[in-house]
Simulated scan of single mutants.
Amino acid sequence: MAIQAKTIDLRSDTVTLPTTAVVDAMGQATVGDFAYGEDQSYNALLAYCKKLFNVEDGLFVTSGTLANRLAIASQTMPGDEVITHYNYHIHFFDSAGNAKINGVVLNCIQNASGVIDIAAVEAAIHSKPRYKHFAQVKLVTIENSINGFNGKVYPFDLQVQLYQWLQAQGIALHIDGARIWNAHVATGIPLSDYAKHTDTISCSFTKGLGGPFGAMLLGSKQVIERAKKLQLWLGSGYHQIGYYAQAAKQVMQHQLTRLAQDHQLAKLFADGIQSIPYIQLIPPYPDTNIVGFSIKALGVSNAVFLETCQAYGLLLFPWLEAHIRAVIHLGIDRAAILSAVATIKQVVNYFIHACK
């Protein structure tokens, strides 16, 4: 079996490394004590994000997971119910954390589209008794782009309709916007429009933008004040955080438009693997930078398939059994995509001949 000299890593867009420009920007930070409001680089990042999203306030946190957890904690009480989708990150990867830390009940919608609309939420609300002693729905969360559905863009018109309907019901809406940048670039819809039609929105700097740290939670002053208190309760306060804040601002200003290249390369990758026997593209066709494909017809386990790909120099992510995910990101170019497609073809041929 041939071993490829250079590894192509498509496991996630979190594997990106800071560029020289990002490292240089961190060295230019003007830091102070965040707890006293004196970190100038953090203050500049917050002001920039508030203007970009046109929101009252925001909070810089360690990760998208913490941003989402704080969004839930600051808009619910233990015992409340949160409606989300089964495959959204908040349930798929963080159901235990939300149960332990937030004490909420997750009511998960399952459908083939990955999109939660008014009808689905209304059905979830009426799926159980709502007497005053039982769990009450206080929050709905959506995701954009939708990781578990190949980076699918959540339709903006449905977001607006859902938000307006939820307002009338006295229920809040949160957007897990870990990859909201990708949705913004794919659609051209301003980030401020996304933020206008939700109560809170999170965004991550460590995925497609290629930052080394952090996420932002954005919303009203009232909600963010609660989130600040809860952040400290969870031991995630800062002092001189400006170095990372400077990095986050730099990638927002200089790495955003290049996401269109990742989207184009994801389509190139999807087109390439569709021609490989025993490999089936999992719909939907990529809107943004994520591609899912099935190896079920090949008759090997995820572990065996991924170990063989790694031996050939390609890293991929096991989403579910027989479901493999590839994520295009900063540092991956056209040549790497063509090489990745060729590697998967080699691996498939290896298994075909090994079984004869």
Rank of each mutant, 00 (worst) to 15 (best):
S202F: 05
R179S: 10
K207D: 11
S204W: 06
D157N: 14
Q164P: 02
D199N: 15
F156M: 13
S192F: 08
P155T: 12
K128S: 11
S192D: 15
F156W: 15
A178G: 15
F149N: 10
D193R: 09
G177A: 02
V185C: 11
E143P: 04
V137M: 05
V137A: 11
L173C: 06
I171F: 11
E122W: 03
G151I: 05
D193S: 07
F149L: 05
I171V: 14
Q169V: 09
A178N: 14
I180Y: 08
P129I: 01
G211L: 02
V160Q: 15
I201P: 05
W165V: 03
A120K: 08
L217D: 00
F156H: 11
I180C: 10
K196D: 04
E143L: 02
K128R: 12
I189E: 15
G208R: 04
L191P: 06
Y194F: 14
R130K: 13
T187V: 12
G214F: 02
D176S: 09
I189W: 12
N147G: 07
T187K: 15
G148F: 06
I175F: 11
A195C: 13
G170E: 11
P190L: 11
G148V: 02
T141H: 07
R130D: 08
G208W: 00
L166V: 01
Y154P: 03
L139T: 01
H133T: 09
F149P: 00
N150F: 03
F205Q: 10
K132Q: 10
T200I: 03
V121S: 09
I146K: 10
I146L: 08
Q164F: 06
S127Y: 06
A119W: 06
V160H: 14
S202M: 05
L162Q: 13
Q164K: 14
V185Y: 09
D193W: 05
H174C: 07
I175S: 06
T141M: 09
L217W: 10
E122A: 10
P212I: 04
W165Q: 13
L166C: 04
W181A: 00
I201Y: 11
Y163M: 09
S204G: 12
I180V: 14
A178L: 00
N150A: 15
P129M: 03
K196M: 03
K128V: 01
V160W: 06
Y194S: 03
G151D: 14
A124F: 04
F213G: 01
E143K: 07
T187E: 15
V160P: 04
Q169W: 08
A183E: 12
V153S: 07
A195V: 02
I180R: 05
L209R: 13
Q167A: 09
G151M: 10
G177H: 03
H184L: 03
E122H: 07
C203F: 15
L139G: 03
V140G: 07
I142R: 12
N147Y: 01
G148Q: 09
S127T: 05
Y163A: 07
K196N: 04
V160C: 09
V160R: 15
H126L: 02
S192C: 04
T200H: 08
A123W: 09
N144H: 08
K207R: 12
Y194N: 03
T200Y: 06
L158R: 15
G208H: 09
P212Q: 05
E122F: 01
G214N: 08
S202N: 14
T198G: 00
A186T: 07
L162D: 13
N182Q: 13
E122D: 14
M216Q: 10
E122S: 08
L218T: 05
S202Y: 08
V140W: 02
